[in-house]
Write a protein that binds this DNA or RNA. Structure first.
Length: 825
RNA sequence: GGGCGAGUGGUGGAAUGGUAUACACGAAGGACUUAAAAUCCUUUGGUCGAAAGGCCUUGAGGGUUCAAUUCCCUCCUCGCCCACCA
């Protein structure tokens, strides 16, 4: 009678095969039906699925199945983000080709996913390493190049010496490679970029429309895009023609500028020192800075390194000549690579000035310390105040002064209002093998020539030597490199770098709409129906990179006329991590639990139920073997109840319901309401499941005398409702139980979601509490909607209430209908 | 340094102004059993009390309110993200 391990295996395999054979979850665009596109972040196939995947995809699967029952035409696809470095590492370590290794990992993952019973439309399965997919990466790249949004330039790039490749800014974490943690250094290279900054304003503005994204993800993207309003101010170099343009967000402090600082990479840094006594010192400093890794240079805390150039710059607002320094705390890549230093009102400038004995002048008065002199200061004053020592701007509050001074400088040609962004263009060239070849050709006569569209894909050669040491493996494949120029026919050579893999994942959600179209990047009609993704689910670690790039690609493809929407993901849910013993479950920590072992013992339904019940989806989830057994026990109880108490001989209700019947009906409707509201109000699966547990507790209490058809019918209803409500969570058991109940239909996934009626939840009497001075002193069973006239004598007669009211004056008697009365004495 | 979030029983968690601790796990006691497992029943925030009942309790302190886990202020702790971004 209990649901044994053998039952589980039999039932789960049976329904997985059934779903696959019947194509139950195949999605077909149908304009007559309302669509729902539910998507998880596709996995990198590095082996078998792990608990993080299981959690992510279980969440998505419940949403998909719930929406099916709500009548939506649901698309729920799956694929593999299959290019990337681990495949190359495997090639080096185990001598197996990346293609072969990846194919094997994909097979492992697919079978793991199938064992979980996910409702995928497997017909849409894709892998980014297939030429049928990456051909369209190349196509998109060429389209971007046509619009000037993909371009090549030489510039200092982040270089990981260990991976021997370039990294995007987004891939540099704390100055180190996001993958191997090696310190990243700066290196000049000729590389391909995507002009994401073209969309900076829109990427920022449209964040406001993403009302169903977690606020923190929106905030993170906002910070990342980093729009700053301020001024560019022109400082002429004394005794020369050069002009140093600085960027500041604090034009109100211009009268307090006591020196100018250049980034070490600034074009004037070396030039200005020439012929001065500082020349040798500057050269030494610049050499040192150039060879230092970014993380080392940025780790200087308060020890700000710098050197005087020997030159002076003229402050345009007062004609004062102030020294020009070079400082390692100024970044070439942000603003103009030069700043005006106001040590009294900027902590970094303050520290630099103190370290190098530079001048200071107070220009914003701290209301708490009027008349403060620089000598008395122990830190910069960055707060609010009015201007002093600032010519005719004295006395103006500093916020107001910003605009006034900016306008005044602009009028006088001293500066201009400006906006600077933190966001930089996206470097996509990688000196790697296992990625999409960049479809460009270099011809001595014609220059950089795109591969013609009709010659795509540029296939990745199977035989590149992968050593992991420096340079692009493709450069060593002669047959690949040598190519006639498409324009003049002369001997030319191919680009041998491949694309960053984030390129692949920036549009895969569009490819799913017509996954096997070999004529177009995707079918515009299909995309028009399915897009945007209604619900996207994935890890917070993709809050910036993947989501920002996907938004960028969607805007580009919209401008290219291929898709109507400008934002790809309507709702976003970031699921929490899976922990064990308080630490993130990971292979390197050696604290992983293998989903397959759990499935073998308890089944996929139990695993799903545990993961969903143990915590809300956004929260961290602590792995708990006892909780797992609890979930198994609950499925067992349900199984046992249906098996032993459900009667299929279609009993009909006869006679009016008594109090016990009404109580069961109440619980049944309450459960439907609770689960429905938990789903609609942000997918609170844990409370949804607890709602069904409460119903099952009521079922257990409900006795059906033999032959009592009315009660049997009500019990049947309750059990059917419980099975339906649980169908998205434990689909295998639900299908089996539904079948045991003799119910028709191809799958429980398409049985309409149960409805509840508020009438059934409205009881004749309600329990009310009585508070005296805010403390509960009594409880009453009273008729619904009882008013003060009814309640007052009743409540005041109560012994418990009397104890606290007797002999005191009743000041207030407040009735909150059907909830409580509050007495103040 | 900046931003965002969190802090509730032994544990995971519930409640978003109205009876704090739903639901589950764990624990204790009991039934069944030769025994164990499974299952079922009872109890389970702390504290004082024989009991009735009282007092305390949602990180700490204050405030608003008849009523605060929920709103406001101050502080503490933890987590995540960003960070010499001018």
């Amino acid at each position: 009678m209990p649901y044994t391990t053998n039952d589980i295996k039999r039932v789960e395999e049976k329904w997985q095969a059934y779903w696959a054979e019947r194509g139950i979850f195949r999605a077909i665009a149908d304009p007559a039906r309302k669509k729902y596109y539910v998507l998880e972040m596709f996995p990198y196939p590095s082996g078998k699925i792990h608990m993080g995947h299981v959690r992510n995809y279980t969440i998505t699967d419940v949403i998909a199945r719930y929406k099916m029952m709500r009548g939506f035409n649901v698309m729920h696809p799956m694929g593999y983000d299959a290019f990337g470095q681990p495949a190359e590492n495997a090639a080096i370590k185990r001598g197996v080709s990346p293609a072969e290794w990846t194919a094997r990992c994909i097979d492992d993952m697919r079978s793991g996913l199938k064992r979980m019973g996910f409702s995928y439309d497997w017909d849409r399965e894709l892998a980014t390493c297939d030429a049928a997919y990456y051909k369209w990466n190349q196509w998109i790249f060429l389209k971007m190049a046509e619009k000037g949004l993909a371009y090549k330039k030489s510039s200092p790039v982040n270089w990981c010496p260990s991976c021997a490749t370039t990294l995007a800014n987004e891939e540099v974490i704390d100055g180190a490679c996001w993958r191997c943690k090696t310190a990243v250094i700066q290196k000049d290279l000729d590389q391909w970029y995507l002009k994401i900054t073209h969309y900076a304003d829109e990427l920022l503005e449209d964040l406001k429309t993403l009302k169903n994204w977690p606020a923190r993800v929106v905030a993170m993207q906002e910070n990342w895009i980093g729009k700053s309003y301020g001024c560019d101010i022109f400082f002429k170099v004394k005794g020369g023609a050069d002009v140093i343009t600085v960027f500041t967000t604090r034009p109100d402090t211009i009268f307090g500028a006591t020196y100018v600082t250049l980034a070490p990479e600034h074009p004037l840094a070396r030039k200005l020192s020439r012929g001065t006594s500082q020349e040798a010192g500057v050269a030494a400093f610049l050499d040192k800075a150039a060879h230092m890794s970014r993380s080392l240079r940025m780790s200087g805390d308060e020890r700000k390194e710098g050197v005087f150039t020997g030159a002076y710059a003229v402050n345009p607002v007062n004609g004062e000549a102030i020294p020009v320094w070079i400082g390692d705390y100024v970044l070439m890549a942000y603003g103009t690579g030069a700043i005006m230093a106001v040590p009294t009102h900027d902590q970094r400038d303050f520290e630099f000035a103190r370290a190098h004995g530079l001048g200071m002048r107070v220009v914003i008065e701290d209301p708490a310390h009027p008349g403060l002199t620089p000598e008395q200061m122990t830190a910069a004053y960055e707060g609010a105040g009015s201007l002093v020592a600032s010519a005719h701007f004295d006395g103006i509050p500093h916020e107001e002064a910003k605009g006034k001074i900016a306008a005044w400088m602009a009028d006088g040609g001293m500066g201009r209002v400006s906006v600077h962004w933190r966001l930089r263009d996206w470097l996509i060239s990688r000196q790697r093998y296992w990625g999409t070849p960049i479809p460009m050709i270099y011809c001595a006569a014609c220059g950089v020539v795109p591969v013609p569209y009709d010659r795509l894909p540029v296939r990745l050669p199977a035989d590149a030597p992968i050593t992991g040491e420096g340079g692009s493996p493709l450069a060593k494949v002669k047959d690949f490199v040598a190519v006639p120029c498409p324009r003049c026919g002369a001997a030319a050579r191919r680009e041998t770098d491949t694309m960053a893999t984030f390129f692949d994942s920036s549009w895969y959600f569009l490819r799913y709409c017509s996954a096997h179209n070999d004529q177009e990047v995707f079918d515009a009609k299909e995309a028009a129906y399915w897009m945007p993704v209604d619900q996207y689910v994935g890890g917070i670690e993709h809050a910036i990179l993947h989501l920002l790039y996907s938004r960028f690609f969607t805007k580009f493809l919209r401008d290219a006329g291929l898709v109507a929407v400008g934002e790809p993901f309507d709702r976003l849910l970031t699921q929490g991590m899976v922990l064990k013993d308080g630490e993130v479950m990971s292979k390197s920590r050696g604290n992983i639990v293998d989903p397959d072992e759990v499935i073998a013992r308890f089944g996929a339904d139990t695993l799903r139920l545990f993961i969903l019940f143990a915590a809300p989806p956004e929260d961290q989830l602590e792995w708990n073997p006892a909780g797992l057994e609890g979930s198994w026990k609950f499925i067992n109880r349900l199984w046992g109840a249906v098996e032993s108490r459900y009667k299929t001989a279609s009993p009909v209700s006869d006679g009016p319901m008594d109090a016990l019947d009404k109580a069961l009906e109440f619980e049944r409707h309450a459960a439907v309401k609770k689960v429905t509201e938990s789903m609609e109000g942000g997918f609170k699966f844990n409370t949804a499941i607890s709602g069904v547990m409460i119903l099952m507790n009521a079922v257990d209490r409900y006795q059906v005398p033999a032959g009592d058809m009315r009660r049997q019918a009500l019990l049947n209803d309750a059990l059917e409702t419980a099975v339906l409500l649980l169908a998205p969570f434990i689909p295998h058991a639900a299908e089996e139980l539904w079948q045991m109940m003799g119910k028709p239909g191809a799958s429980i996934a398409f049985i309409p979601w149960p409805v509840y009626s508020d009438d059934r939840l409205r009881t004749d009497t309600v329990r009310m509490a009585a508070q005296v001075n805010g403390k509960v002193r009594g409880e009453f069973e009273v008729p619904r909607d009882a008013d003060e006239a009814f309640l007052r004598p009743l409540v005041l007669a109560d012994e418990g209430v009397q104890r606290h009211v007797a002999g005191k004056e009743i000041r207030k008697f407040i009735v909150i209908k059907n909830k409580l009365v509050s007495i103040v004495v």
